[in-house]
Amino acid sequence: MDEFWVFGYGSLMWNPGFDYEMRVGALARGYRRSLCVRSFVHRGTPERPGLVLGLDRGGSCRGVAFRVADGKREAVLDYLRARELVTHVYLERQLSVLLEDGRPVRAVGYVVDRSHSQYGGALTVEEAARIVQVSHGQSGPNDAYVANTVAHLKEMGIRDHWLEGVAARVADLQARTVAVA
Rank of each mutant, 00 (worst) to 15 (best):
G54D: 09
D113H: 07
F7H: 02
T177P: 00
F40A: 02
V166D: 06
S60E: 11
E164H: 10
L80G: 08
R33K: 05
Y9A: 11
G121V: 02
A175G: 04
L51W: 02
S115A: 01
R159E: 15
R73D: 09
R81I: 12
F40R: 08
A179C: 06
D101R: 07
Y90S: 01
R29K: 13
M22P: 09
G63L: 03
V52N: 11
T87P: 12
R23N: 00
G109D: 01
G63C: 07
I158H: 12
V68G: 05
T149E: 00
G58M: 04
E127T: 14
L98W: 12
V125E: 03
G54R: 13
A179Q: 06
Q138M: 09
L55I: 08
E164Q: 11
D172F: 01
G109V: 09
G109C: 11
F7D: 05
Q138E: 14
P16R: 03
V166H: 00
A65Y: 06
R159S: 12
N15T: 10
R159V: 15
G165N: 06
Y79G: 01
V105N: 06
R83P: 01
H88P: 02
V52M: 01
K72A: 15
R43H: 04
G58S: 00
V6G: 07
R169N: 02
V6T: 10
Y79I: 07
V64Y: 07
G59N: 01
P16D: 01
L173F: 14
H88Q: 13
V105F: 05
V180F: 10
K154C: 14
D160G: 05
R130Y: 05
A107G: 13
A181P: 05
R33N: 07
H152K: 06
R130K: 09
G17R: 00
V112E: 07
L53P: 03
M156S: 02
G54N: 05
A122N: 01
R169P: 00
G25A: 12
E3K: 13
Y90P: 04
F66L: 00
V37G: 10
V146I: 05
F66E: 05
R62L: 15
D56A: 12
S11I: 04
S135E: 02
A65Q: 11
G50H: 10
R73P: 13
T149K: 04
R33Q: 04
P46Q: 11
Q118P: 07
S60C: 10
V68P: 08
V37T: 11
P49A: 13
S115G: 08
G102S: 15
D113R: 08
M1G: 14
A128D: 03
